[in-house]
């Protein structure tokens, strides 16, 4: 039996809109993954500490407040700092197209925009997490 994929779905920043994060969480659950959901308004520090304790394979960040350029790279940096940069980080939310190259350069593996299907996200995680 192969190890189950474990994903942390987290909402950094101050917006309280977590419908998207919950939809993704449920879709990943239905795809057989174990999903930790930590609720709204988490700091990057809290997210990374949680990811390390839970030893997750991947972190999905959801942000609708416009602060993604600051918060998403901060999560990646903190993971590096803690020696946990093998964790696959992806993001979603209201993110302008022109921000995407910068986020990818900062180490966010993929960005899912409104309209992306949950299947895409599931496939992406399955194909890119380090464990199998």
């Amino acid at each position: 039996m192969s190890k189950k994929i474990k994903v942390l779905i987290a909402k950094p920043g101050l917006d309280g809109h977590d419908r998207g994060a919950k939809v993704v969480s449920r879709a990943l659950r239905d795809a057989g993954m174990e999903v930790i959901y930590t609720g709204i308004r988490q700091t990057p520090e809290q997210i990374v500490a949680t990811a390390i304790q839970e030893d997750v394979d991947s972190i999905g960040l959801s942000c609708l407040s416009g602060a993604h350029n600051k918060l998403f790279p901060k999560v990646v940096d903190l993971l590096k700092e803690k020696g946990a940069d093998d964790v696959l980080v992806f993001g979603g939310g209201i993110i302008p197209d022109e921000d995407i190259p910068g986020l990818k350069a900062a180490g966010i593996a993929e960005i899912f925009l409104p309209g992306a299907s949950t299947e895409e996200t599931i496939e992406f995680i399955r194909n890119n997490v380090k464990t199998a």
């Binding site: 659950r29 795809a31 174990e34 999903v35 930790i36 930590t38 809290q46 949680t50």
Partner: peptide, 28 residues
């Protein structure tokens, strides 16, 4: 889930005030 084998582990939501405390280790 008895159907997919997946799970949503949400107990931590209520405990996130301790996320940065070195003296607390929470595992779902």
């Amino acid at each position: 889930s008895p159907f997919s084998g997946g799970a949503i582990l949400g107990d931590r939501i209520r405990m996130q005030q301790h996320a940065l405390d070195d003296g607390v280790f929470i595992r779902s």
